[in-house]
């Protein structure tokens, strides 16, 4: 091994370690802070940031003093319900787009542009509509909004997955005497199942993470996890401990999803344009 080779290798590993530390540093920090007592959080000594006696106080306070469990439940109900509705609407639509190019591309464009519709633009009209309908601070209100924002993304992503199914398979099924509906259900659907799972996870995560609408449209009874966590900052007393504990719980599902969906993240974030 030449000197130059060793030098190159050393630089490579130093850079790689720096990249990884920058990426996971803040995430590790959430979990470190979540187990710290207030004295260890408000310290200006560097060593005490790492060496401390772990405590579960923050989590205890989070669930007893603040309505964290309720807000977590709200987030789960809203994300799951909106994702189910999204899939019921998006799967057939995406199939129609990919198999017959329904609407000659125009409807598909309108669909995708909904996702690019600025959330703030839609916020005021919906706020006033929901106020008149009594949907403010209800689960149904947020479910509808999340459904609307995810349905276009889901349709477009699924469109890419449906395009991967060879049309010959369907023709063979037609010749075997299957009806249109049965071909869709028995031939196409099993083949795009990975796509459906991927899309669902993306919709779930988006709803899970959403803040703007949750913040504007809920006050108490439908308050979501992100809104509750945000209230720890900006009030009179900053609650770093409970905030970190809440963040630790709120971030966990997305980290797990990121790990197990590695193969599909690039595809999902690029609306299916880059296969990864």
């Amino acid at each position: 091994m030449s000197k130059k080779f060793i030098l190159k290798r050393t630089i490579f590993w130093i850079l790689t370690i720096i990249i990884i530390l920058v990426v996971i540093g803040p995430l590790i920090w959430i979990y470190l802070t979540a187990f710290k007592s207030p004295n260890d959080i408000f310290t200006s000594e560097l060593s005490r940031q790492f060496i401390f006696t772990p405590t579960l106080d923050n989590f205890k306070r989070l669930f007893t003093q603040f309505a964290f469990f309720g807000s977590l439940l709200n987030t789960i109900i809203i994300s799951v319900a909106s994702t189910i509705i999204v899939m019921i609407i998006a799967v057939p639509a995406a199939y129609s787009f990919s198999r017959w190019n329904t609407g000659g591309g125009h409807i598909l464009f309108v669909t995708i542009s909904t996702r690019m519709f600025p959330a703030v633009v839609a916020a005021l009209p919906f706020f006033i509509l929901f106020r008149n309908l009594g949907l403010l601070d209800t689960h149904i209100g947020l479910i509808l909004l999340y459904m609307y924002f995810n349905v276009s993304f889901a349709t477009f992503l699924l469109y890419g997955f449906f395009r991967d199914v060879p049309i010959e398979l369907e023709q063979a099924a037609l010749i075997d005497g299957y009806g249109r509906f049965n071909i869709f259900r028995k031939v196409v659907l099993p083949l795009v199942l990975p796509g459906i799972v991927t899309t669902s996870v993306f919709c779930l995560i988006w709803s899970w993470n959403e803040f703007l609408y949750a913040f504007l449209f809920t006050r108490s009874s439908a308050k979501t996890m992100t809104v509750l966590i945000s209230s720890f900052w900006g009030s009179i007393e900053i609650q770093y401990g409970p905030m970190a504990a809440g963040a630790a719980i709120g971030v966990l599902p997305t980290l797990i999803a990121a790990w197990f969906m590695q193969r599909y993240i690039v595809r999902g974030l690029t609306f299916g344009a880059v296969k990864g």
Partner: peptide, 9 residues
């Protein structure tokens, strides 16, 4: 990891 984490959090 950072890609799917809630931006607000």
């Amino acid at each position: 990891f950072p890609l799917l984490v809630a931006p607000l959090i």
